[in-house]
Design a protein around this nucleic acid. Structure first.
Lengths: 208, 208, 208, 208
DNA sequence: GATTAAACGAGACGGTACGTCCGGTCTTGTG
DNA sequence: CACAAGACCGGACGTACCGTCTCGTTTAATC
């Protein structure tokens, strides 16, 4: 996970596993205190009790390091089972909003996306470490809804993926935009309005 | 627009108006070539044929400069009148996606949003220079749709604003997420799917 | 003297003259405390209350800086007039030995000479800043001795220079070797022995 | 010779003798190519096909390693028997000058002397490995000259040592200064001049 | 022939300094 | 007073070596 061409050679002193954990934790701490732009590699290494070289042996730079440090925050999101799709979605929306109130997530997420606009490797890393992993929530939600009969079963699996992607972009994009661009609160009321809009959209365009 | 306490003193040499334009143009050029993180104040001043001091007299720093340099790009968005709301929305979605393919917009938008997570003044500047200005598209679209009878008239004006905000966040957020986070193309097919989802949502939840 | 291509442009803020003096003094202090090999550019800049960039603007590196810092120490050497050549030489030998007991001179002199074996520019710098300047002592000493009749007048000026160089190398080289390579004390007794040897040599080979 | 507390334990794998030779040869090669200041322990170990630890097991650091690597070069100096003292001295002067034209000797000799100004242990090492060993040339030369009757026999052995040291410092110091500090060539002409000066000095001050 | 203990190669580790770059400020002279 | 030029202080960058350490692997002398 910390990446970088692990030479996998059998010889030599093995890399410290403890260092990885310390570095990622230190990175999150520094993000909270300093934010993305004031975070420095030297500071992270000092917090982690690790030499700068150790850091650069494992990550190519600040971007890669922060993606890894933040990615696992997103794994805390979980799909509850409240009995109906609308309630489930609303819950996830609020979970996601809570995550985006954490300073380390707020400051880091947009920053790495900004950097990724000029760095294809970073783009891939974000996709695999964050985007693709969280699509599980949409996939699982649809499966449950179909099992409950709330949504029609996909006749063709080939259609399933584009729809999953679309729903994911709508939910994640809208919440992020509300929270970070418009800078408005994501409260119960807003979550309910947004979820209602989405539900009508899904049910209406399902057959089409 | 370049802000900063214009001293409004009557005496002394007046500020060069040409310098402002040159600086903003140089900033956009530099964004295209270098991206946000490699853009430096010294480089911008050199490109603009201007001293660094002149730059700092007008803008407090890189963030403020870039917001101003990029904001007017967003004014190019226009709401067409294709006769029905769905076509109008689809068109704006594609316009916005085209804008997000411009390197200076891609790299700058996410970056300033990231910085704004720790800087309330910057947050306000983004809101007034970009977000609030583009909400006009949503307001105008709804007015036209109501005039055409595609959407019911808002019974209470107090409800109008939250709905406008929600729609704006859904459209802008989803397109940005698709383009910059998921890194997938926003083509005609996707625009049509997304617009259909949104239309069903709007019509369905309007009465509710 | 601090060298480096002074751009000599008329515009812009001029270089601080005070900085030069502070840097050279700081360099000598650091040499005393740390010696050549532990002396760092960062440490010198900190002692001088100056940024590292200011240092590098004026000197290409540690070698050049130290040559300049040490060169002026050698200007303190003076030729006394004790009435006879032998006494004058003995005095200079002891002065030079005293200089070589100063830690900043000891540690720096050999080090820059060592570096100069691979750097022609540094070699020239040492020659012009140290070697050529101190040859004045030999030239002056011979003139006085000739005026006193202790040494024959040079019939041909073309012979004068090689002889000056030889005497300079014998005196400087022998004292340095005694003090720094053999690591033996240069005391009055030794100075007298060496001077006697040299005087006999000069008188004997003068006519030849 | 490679020093360091050889634990002399009876058991265990003995140190490789081949490694020592390879390391010293690699050190000399590196000195030729890179000079003292660019020579690194890691580079030497790589050239020698040896691990860095092996290197540090035998030598305390760069200084000690280089002294050992260079010391034996000086053993190549030999006193010829040309029939008269003057010719013998002139020959040795030219041999020494030739040695100082070798890059590994030039760069290393001054550098270790410079380091030794702050390191008494290194000073001793230089003295025993280089200085004292080469004094044999002076001792032998005087013996021969006395046997030939060119120089008077020392009436008192107690006087012999200081005189030997003085002659050694004069010869070695002057040649080194000419070659490395003044950066002037040591050719036949110069060697003859210097030797003549020294011979007159010796003969003149011998009786005194 | 098995045991044993040190030397060995590889390479990661915590440090320190490097020389460069940039940010933001200041100090000149010119317009 | 604004401006171009450019020196200034501070601080982070990413790299290179230092000397130490931790591995798994020889390799000889002793049993």
């Amino acid at each position: 996970m910390p990446n970088e061409s692990t030479p996998s050679g059998r010889t030599g002193r093995p890399r410290s596993a403890a260092a990885d954990a310390a570095i990622l934790a230190a990175t999150r701490d520094a993000l909270v205190e300093l934010g993305w732009s004031k975070l420095t590699m030297g500071d992270v290494s000092a917090r982690a009790g690790v030499a700068k070289t150790t850091l650069y042996r494992r990550w190519a730079g600040k971007n890669e390091l922060v993606v890894d440090a933040v990615a696992e925050l997103f794994d805390s999101l979980e799909l509850p089972d409240r009995g109906c799709l609308e309630a489930d979605v609303e819950d996830v929306v609020l979970q996601f909003a809570a995550l985006l109130r954490r300073p380390e997530a707020r400051t880091a997420l947009m920053a790495v996306v900004a950097e990724s606009t000029r760095d294809p490797a970073l783009r891939d890393r974000i996709r695999s470490a964050i985007v693709d992993r969280q699509k599980r929530l949409v996939v699982l939600g649809r499966q449950r809804a179909q099992a409950r009969g709330e949504l029609p079963r996909e006749p063709d699996d080939a259609l399933a993926e584009p729809t999953t992607d679309l729903i994911f972009d709508v939910i994640a994009g809208t919440v992020v935009h509300r929270a970070l661009v418009s800078s408005e609160p994501v409260d119960d009321l807003w979550a309910a309005s947004f979820t209602a809009l989405l539900m009508h959209g899904l049910r209406g365009s399902a057959g089409a």
